[in-house]
C-alpha cells in the first residue's frame, strides 16, 4: 500500500525528531535544544525539496492543504486548523522565552587554568603542582587514609551544603544556584581533571574564573580565606577517594 505524500512527510519528520530526542530520553545525554532546532529546520527543508522536485509529487503533497483552504465542505476543519495553528506557534514561542529553564548560553565549565596562581603568600605553578598527600597512598596507606578522613570532615563542614552528602551535586542549596554545583561522581568532572586544577578551583572559587566561564557566574566561594592549604589538599584527596575516581595525570 502506498502511503500518501503528506503522511510520508509527517512520518519522516516525526521519525527524525524521535531519533534526535532519543539520546536524551533513553540515555540521559540530551542533544541540546539549540542543535535539535537547527537539525529539524534543515531536515524539514530537505524533505520539502525532495517532495517538490517533480510536479506530480508537489501536487500530491499540497493537495490536502489546497482542499483544506478552498473546499467549501471542509469549513469546520478549516476553522479548527486556523485556530490551532496560531496557538501552536504561540506555544512554541512561549517555550523559547519562558525563564524557568534558564537561559541557554555558551559556557565553558572547565576553562583553561592560568599557568600560575598566587595564594597563601606564595606562587603555585599549576602545570607542575602535585598533591603532596598523593605519595602517601603508596608509602603510608594508613596515614593516607587518615588524611582522607580528615578531608571528609572538611567536606562535611564546608562543601556538602551545595555539593551534596552523596557528592552528586545535589545539596540542600543546590536547586537555588545557577549554574548548579557540579557533582563529583561520574566520569565527567573530577575524573577529567588534574588535582592542581581542583586546587585552583577551590582556592580561587567562582570569582577567580576567567571570562570564558561566563556569562553565568558561579557562586563557588574562594576558600583561600577559610581553609588552610593542607585542608584543601585533604578534601581533594577525599573527593577522589570517595567517588572512586583517579586524578588525571599532569601534562598532556
Amino acid at each position: 500500500m502506498k502511503i500518501p505524500k503528506p503522511l510520508q512527510f509527517i512520518i519522516v519528520v516525526l521519525v527524525v525528531y524521535g531519533l534526535l530526542k532519543a539520546p536524551g530520553l533513553l540515555l540521559g545525554k540530551p542533544i541540546p535544544q539549540s542543535v535539535i532546532f537547527m537539525y529539524m529546520l534543515f531536515v524539514v527543508i530537505a524533505v520539502l525539496l525532495v517532495m517538490t522536485a517533480t510536479d506530480e509529487s508537489t501536487e500530491e503533497l499540497f493537495a490536502p492543504v489546497r482542499a483544506l483552504v478552498e473546499d467549501p465542505s471542509k469549513r469546520l476543519i478549516r476553522n479548527v486548523v486556523f485556530i490551532i495553528l496560531p496557538l501552536t506557534a504561540g506555544y512554541i514561542a512561549y517555550g523559547f522565552t519562558k525563564t524557568g529553564g534558564g537561559q541557554a548560553g555558551l559556557r565553558s565549565v572547565h576553562p583553561a587554568p592560568p599557568l600560575e596562581m598566587r595564594a597563601y603568600g606564595k606562587a603555585f605553578d599549576l602545570s607542575t603542582l602535585v598533591n603532596p598527600l598523593r605519595r602517601l597512598e603508596k608509602e603510608d596507606p594508613a596515614e593516607f587514609k587518615r588524611n582522607v578522613e580528615e578531608g571528609g570532615a572538611v567536606y562535611f563542614r564546608n562543601c556538602f551544603f551545595c555539593h551534596g552528602d552523596k557528592l552528586d551535586g545535589i545539596g540542600h542549596y543546590a536547586h537555588a544556584l545557577t549554574p548548579p554545583p557540579l557533582p563529583f561522581k561520574g566520569r565527567d568532572t573530577i575524573a577529567q581533571l588534574s588535582e592542581s586544577y581542583l586546587f585552583w578551583r577551590i582556592v580561587k572559587g567562582g570569582v577567580g574564573l576567567p571570562q570564558e566561564a561566563g556569562p553565568a557566574e558561579s557562586s563557588m566561594p574562594a576558600w583561600e580565606e577559610d581553609l588552610r592549604e593542607d585542608e584543601v589538599w585533604k578534601v581533594i584527596t577525599f573527593l577522589y577517594d570517595y567517588t572512586g575516581n583517579r586524578p588525571r595525570p599532569l601534562g598532556r
Partner: peptide, 23 residues
C-alpha cells in the same frame, strides 16, 4: 606576561605550540 604580552596564548600546557616557561 598574562595580559598585554599574550605570551600564554602559545606558552601553555594545552596547545603545545611553544615550550613551557616553567622553571
Amino acid at each position: 606576561f598574562k595580559g598585554k604580552g599574550a605570551c600564554t596564548l602559545c606558552h601553555n600546557p594545552v596547545g603545545g605550540r611553544a615550550p613551557l616557561l616553567d622553571g
